[in-house]
């Protein structure tokens, strides 16, 4: 069984600049997050579901990550393993600029827990939270928000804004950083 697996040090597939969009996502076999991405209708690359078989990917351009939250209470399982494997590559981690998370408010305080976990670990802003497949409003707000985010990031490439307030604050600050809070909402 283990003989079929590539060794842990197996080199990831390096995406060319053409193949490496500014949106990277993970979606489990339920494909809920995939459906949200499809409705955004912008180029995105999927983190492999079975990295050991399919091989991991290595991106080459700054990107925003969209991930579902796993579990319901346990920090250990909140971030999907595949996303952890992807971010364990320093190249990928270094290009991460922000995180958007799918979840379900039924999980209470652990709603979209993967967002703050990744945000804290990688020191990038948590940009938005949505539930399940996302509503039409979520799609509109994320699309508008990503446009704004990358426009702001453009002049000072390769660095995008990396500092942001707490994940659930809804302050309507005047400066550029705080304006990004508008992208964020607890629910649809």
């Amino acid at each position: 069984m283990t003989a079929q697996r590539p060794s842990p040090g197996h080199a990831p597939r390096e995406l060319t600049p053409e193949e490496s969009p500014d949106l990277v996502f993970f979606s489990s076999v339920s494909e809920n997050t995939l459906r949200f991405i499809e409705r955004l209708d912008r180029p995105a690359v999927r983190i492999p579901l079975r990295p050991r078989l399919e091989g991991m990917i290595r991106v080459c351009r700054p990107f925003v990550l969209v991930v579902p939250t796993y579990g319901g209470g346990e920090h250990a399982g909140a971030v999907p393993k595949q996303v952890i494997a992807f971010l364990n590559d320093p190249v990928n981690r270094g290009l991460l600029r922000g995180v958007i998370t799918a979840g379900n408010t039924n999980f209470g305080e652990h709603y979209c827990l993967a967002g703050p976990v990744i945000s804290r670990k990688c020191a990038v802003p948590e940009l938005y939270r949505f539930e399940l497949l996302g509503t039409r409003r979520d799609v509109e707000r994320v699309n508008a928000g990503l446009d704004l985010f990358w426009r702001r990031a453009a002049p000072s490439t390769p660095e995008a804004p990396t500092e942001m307030a707490g994940p659930t604050s809804d302050t309507n600050g005047r400066n550029d950083m705080n304006d990004m809070n508008d992208m964020r909402s607890r629910t649809a």
């Binding site: 408010t105 039409r136 649809a188």
Partner: peptide
């Protein structure tokens, strides 16, 4: 959405009092 279908009600029709949503997630 759990069944894989798009939402039926608009955002305005589903605006729940924020304190109820806060009660869902007492959190920090």
């Amino acid at each position: 959405m759990n069944l894989g279908y798009p939402a039926r009600f608009t955002a305005d029709e589903t605006t729940v009092r924020p304190e109820i949503l806060a009660a869902l997630a007492p959190g920090s």
